Amino acid sequence: MSSVIEQSVQARMVASAPRMETLPAMLSYDREYPFAVRMAFPAPATLEGTEVSWEFSRELLAAGVDDPAGEGDVRVRPFGYDRTVLEFHAPEGIAMVHVRTEELRRFLQRARELVPEGEEHLYLDVDRELSGLLGEDR
Protein backbone atom coordinates (compact mmCIF):
# COMPACT_ATOMS: atom_id res chain seq x y z
CA MET A 1 0.00 0.00 0.00
CA SER A 2 1.32 3.43 -0.93
CA SER A 3 2.12 5.84 1.87
CA VAL A 4 0.95 8.87 -0.14
CA ILE A 5 -2.54 9.79 -1.29
CA GLU A 6 -3.03 12.31 -4.07
CA GLN A 7 -6.35 13.54 -5.34
CA SER A 8 -6.97 16.05 -8.07
CA VAL A 9 -9.78 18.52 -7.37
CA GLN A 10 -11.29 21.43 -9.23
CA ALA A 11 -11.11 24.61 -7.22
CA ARG A 12 -13.02 27.74 -8.10
CA MET A 13 -11.17 30.95 -7.36
CA VAL A 14 -13.38 33.55 -5.71
CA ALA A 15 -12.73 36.93 -7.33
CA SER A 16 -14.50 40.24 -7.67
CA ALA A 17 -15.71 39.29 -11.14
CA PRO A 18 -19.14 37.64 -11.34
CA ARG A 19 -17.66 34.42 -12.78
CA MET A 20 -15.34 32.29 -10.73
CA GLU A 21 -12.35 30.86 -12.55
CA THR A 22 -11.95 27.08 -12.26
CA LEU A 23 -8.44 25.87 -11.67
CA PRO A 24 -6.87 22.51 -10.96
CA ALA A 25 -5.47 21.73 -7.54
CA MET A 26 -3.89 18.67 -5.99
CA LEU A 27 -4.60 17.48 -2.48
CA SER A 28 -2.03 15.16 -0.97
CA TYR A 29 -1.55 13.30 2.27
CA ASP A 30 1.64 11.48 3.27
CA ARG A 31 1.60 8.86 6.01
CA GLU A 32 5.11 9.99 7.01
CA TYR A 33 3.63 13.41 7.94
CA PRO A 34 0.36 12.18 9.44
CA PHE A 35 -0.96 15.45 10.83
CA ALA A 36 -0.70 17.47 7.60
CA VAL A 37 -2.39 17.75 4.23
CA ARG A 38 -1.07 19.70 1.28
CA MET A 39 -2.97 21.60 -1.39
CA ALA A 40 -0.96 22.58 -4.45
CA PHE A 41 -1.86 24.81 -7.36
CA PRO A 42 0.16 24.36 -10.59
CA ALA A 43 2.22 27.21 -12.05
CA PRO A 44 -0.28 28.16 -14.80
CA ALA A 45 -2.99 28.65 -12.16
CA THR A 46 -1.04 31.21 -10.12
CA LEU A 47 -0.30 34.90 -10.59
CA GLU A 48 3.42 34.32 -10.02
CA GLY A 49 3.67 31.56 -12.63
CA THR A 50 5.16 29.14 -10.10
CA GLU A 51 3.56 26.27 -8.21
CA VAL A 52 2.08 27.39 -4.93
CA SER A 53 1.29 24.97 -2.15
CA TRP A 54 -0.11 25.22 1.33
CA GLU A 55 0.30 22.72 4.14
CA PHE A 56 -2.18 22.66 6.97
CA SER A 57 -3.61 20.22 9.45
CA ARG A 58 -5.81 17.35 8.43
CA GLU A 59 -7.87 18.09 11.53
CA LEU A 60 -8.51 21.66 10.30
CA LEU A 61 -9.76 20.40 6.92
CA ALA A 62 -11.99 17.78 8.56
CA ALA A 63 -13.50 20.31 10.97
CA GLY A 64 -13.96 22.99 8.30
CA VAL A 65 -16.18 20.94 6.00
CA ASP A 66 -18.88 21.00 8.71
CA ASP A 67 -18.22 24.20 10.69
CA PRO A 68 -15.98 27.26 10.28
CA ALA A 69 -12.46 26.40 11.43
CA GLY A 70 -9.08 28.08 11.60
CA GLU A 71 -7.78 31.42 12.82
CA GLY A 72 -4.40 31.64 11.11
CA ASP A 73 -3.07 31.48 7.57
CA VAL A 74 -5.56 28.81 6.50
CA ARG A 75 -9.27 28.92 7.25
CA VAL A 76 -11.94 26.48 6.11
CA ARG A 77 -15.72 26.79 6.21
CA PRO A 78 -18.81 25.30 4.61
CA PHE A 79 -20.47 27.33 1.87
CA GLY A 80 -23.99 26.43 0.85
CA TYR A 81 -25.12 22.87 0.37
CA ASP A 82 -22.21 21.35 -1.51
CA ARG A 83 -19.15 23.58 -1.32
CA THR A 84 -16.38 24.32 1.13
CA VAL A 85 -14.35 27.53 1.10
CA LEU A 86 -10.64 27.43 1.81
CA GLU A 87 -9.02 30.80 2.58
CA PHE A 88 -5.26 31.15 2.26
CA HIS A 89 -3.89 34.27 3.98
CA ALA A 90 -0.45 35.57 2.94
CA PRO A 91 1.31 38.95 3.11
CA GLU A 92 0.40 39.46 -0.56
CA GLY A 93 -3.30 39.04 0.13
CA ILE A 94 -6.01 36.43 0.58
CA ALA A 95 -6.86 33.70 -1.88
CA MET A 96 -10.26 32.07 -1.51
CA VAL A 97 -11.22 28.90 -3.33
CA HIS A 98 -14.38 26.82 -3.40
CA VAL A 99 -14.08 23.04 -3.58
CA ARG A 100 -16.90 20.53 -3.72
CA THR A 101 -17.40 19.24 -0.20
CA GLU A 102 -17.88 15.69 -1.45
CA GLU A 103 -14.40 15.74 -3.01
CA LEU A 104 -12.91 16.84 0.32
CA ARG A 105 -14.85 14.18 2.24
CA ARG A 106 -13.63 11.50 -0.19
CA PHE A 107 -10.04 12.67 0.26
CA LEU A 108 -10.38 12.71 4.05
CA GLN A 109 -11.86 9.21 4.05
CA ARG A 110 -8.92 7.90 2.02
CA ALA A 111 -6.52 9.59 4.47
CA ARG A 112 -8.36 8.01 7.42
CA GLU A 113 -8.00 4.59 5.80
CA LEU A 114 -4.25 5.17 5.54
CA VAL A 115 -3.86 6.68 9.04
CA PRO A 116 -6.89 6.53 11.34
CA GLU A 117 -7.66 9.70 13.30
CA GLY A 118 -6.14 9.52 16.76
CA GLU A 119 -3.36 7.17 15.60
CA GLU A 120 -1.18 9.76 13.86
CA HIS A 121 1.47 9.51 16.58
CA LEU A 122 2.09 5.88 15.64
CA TYR A 123 3.36 6.99 12.22
CA LEU A 124 5.76 9.71 13.35
CA ASP A 125 9.49 9.11 12.92
CA VAL A 126 10.74 11.36 15.71
CA ASP A 127 14.40 10.40 15.17
CA ARG A 128 14.23 11.39 11.48
CA GLU A 129 12.55 14.70 12.32
CA LEU A 130 15.13 15.55 14.99
CA SER A 131 17.98 14.63 12.65
CA GLY A 132 16.49 16.90 10.01
CA LEU A 133 16.17 19.77 12.45
CA LEU A 134 19.76 19.29 13.65
CA GLY A 135 21.10 18.96 10.09
CA GLU A 136 22.36 15.43 10.68
CA ASP A 137 22.38 12.72 8.04
CA ARG A 138 21.15 9.28 9.02
Rank of each mutant, 00 (worst) to 15 (best):
A17Q: 11
V37R: 03
E59V: 10
R58N: 06
A43T: 09
F41L: 14
G80F: 06
D67C: 10
R38F: 00
E55R: 12
G80C: 05
V65F: 10
Y33W: 08
A95K: 02
V97N: 04
L47H: 10
T101N: 13
R19D: 14
R12A: 11
L61M: 13
S53P: 04
E32F: 01
E102A: 14
A45G: 11
A69V: 07
P44F: 11
V37M: 05
L23M: 14
D30N: 12
A90Q: 15
D67H: 15
E102N: 05
E102Q: 12
W54N: 02
E102H: 04
G80D: 09
Y33P: 00
L86I: 15
S53I: 01
L60N: 10
P34S: 05
P34H: 10
S16M: 10
L27F: 14
P68I: 06
Y81W: 02
A25D: 05
L61T: 06
S16C: 01
G49K: 01
S53T: 07
P24R: 05
G49V: 07
P34C: 04
D30C: 02
L86V: 14
V76M: 09
A45L: 07
L60S: 11
L86A: 05
T46Y: 13
W54F: 15
D67M: 14
M26S: 12
V14I: 15
M96F: 00
F35G: 00
P78Y: 15
V9C: 07
Q10Y: 00
E71C: 04
E51S: 13
E103P: 00
A63L: 11
V85Y: 03
E71Y: 14
F41D: 11
R75N: 02
M96R: 12
G64R: 03
A25L: 10
F35M: 08
T50C: 02
E21G: 00
S28L: 03
I94R: 13
W54K: 01
E48I: 06
R38Q: 13
E92I: 03
M13V: 12
M20D: 12
E51H: 01
P68S: 10
G80W: 10
V52A: 15
G64S: 03
P18T: 07
P34R: 03
D30W: 03
E71Q: 14
T46E: 09
E51Y: 00
G80L: 05
E21D: 00
Y33T: 02
G93E: 08
P18I: 04
E71K: 15
E102D: 15
T101Q: 13
R12E: 14
A45I: 05
E48H: 06
F88K: 05
R31T: 01
L104S: 03
V9A: 07
R83A: 15
Q10M: 01
M39L: 15
M26D: 11
